[in-house]
Design a protein around this nucleic acid. Structure first.
Lengths: 193, 193
DNA sequence: CTGATTTCTTAATCTGGTTCAAGTAAATCC
DNA sequence: GGATTTACTTGAACCAGATTAAGAAATCAG
């Protein structure tokens, strides 16, 4: 596994020269993750920002009642990780697990900090990344308020068609903010149409 | 109105020198906004990123049924605006209005683009700004899924105590994702305790 | 100061979605 | 390949919060 994919993807937003690309690829740590394995556990301090090369990951919050709530699925090209824990170096409130055998790159916090100091171009890259992600999150909040669960499910399937191969329905339900039982009901309603 | 407040605030994240501070303050456009006035209307392309000096603004989405959904209240020190419209120069899906007489700075898109090109330090500032905002938005999604409306209301009052002086209850209800009637019910329940 | 508009509350009724409990299909594991 | 765990479905009872409609309180305009 080499870093050419991730670098190509970054080059869609900024233009890295040889030196920058090389430096970046040396700080990335490649890893293979087996389905079901944890990349990050609640309560421990997040050391890495995670970039998915292939496979599928899921990040989720576990509430006081022990129920899980999915905040994100990540497939090829996505970054993930508990940003709050990563930034402030506090215990994570999210867990991240592989929903399929996956390969990822870890970007350790100290290396990311150095990277940003040395090559401000990466500040731009991550600024754009977070800016876009913020727009997506605002939209998700609005959609959750203004649409029914059924609309949200249809919208989800259109927006992330590739996820259905990886993600069990109960996690899709969680992502949508409903119970698996109710998602089941929605699905039956739709096939009856 | 001068730019010293906003520059002091930016200096909490990066260190601007004289030249940078000066350049930044020359591209900011100060404005006074009367209560009830629009800073940004749905359907028009957002030209400015908005920084609140004093007063209080509200950004909201209007759904197909004509119902408004508040995404953000902004008081002194906050940035606001329809980021999607601003970034992609597409018609805005959010409106922004003043909930009280307010003073703001506009940062026009072209000036922000030039600012970021000329002084990459600002890339860092906005990277941190969006990164923190993203964390807040993730948290809001999770809280909406895992807490009851009553818990969310209590949490809101603790987190944003200063907003109660500006914001009518019906907009707080909207921000929490409930109807004004139900917020009323919650409030009565609480005073009865 | 006064009428008009907007905000907030109250109560009755209704509904989208949950909970609980049970059964079935599908992965997974030795 | 058979046993066991995990994922999905079904249905009945239930509840958090929506809807509707009306009145009370506050704010605003002239």
């Amino acid at each position: 596994m080499n870093a050419s994919n991730i670098i190509a993807q970054i080059n869609r937003h900024i233009s890295l020269d040889e030196k920058e690309s090389l430096y970046f690829s040396t700080v990335l740590i490649p890893a293979k993750i087996k389905q079901g394995d944890f990349l990050e556990k609640i309560g421990t301090v997040t050391q890495n920002f995670i970039h998915v090369e292939s496979g599928c990951l899921m990040s989720y919050y576990t509430d006081k009642g022990g129920d899980d709530h999915v905040i994100q699925f990540s497939t090829s090209g996505w970054w993930t990780g508990d940003l709050h824990s990563f930034t402030k170096q506090l215990p994570a409130i999210y867990s991240t697990r592989a929903l399929a055998d996956s390969s990822v790159f870890y970007l350790p916090k100290t290396d990311m900090d150095q990277l940003l100091d040395r090559y401000p171009k990466f500040e731009r890259y991550f600024r754009i990344l977070f800016q876009n992600s913020l727009i997506t999150h605002q939209d998700r909040i609005i959609q959750n308020f203004s649409n029914t669960a059924e609309d949200r499910y249809e919208h989800f399937r259109i927006k992330y068609p590739s996820l259905e191969q990886y993600v069990p329905l109960k996690y899709i339900a969680s992502y949508l903010g409903i119970t698996p039982e109710f998602l089941s009901k929605i699905r039956r309603r739709q096939t009856e149409k």
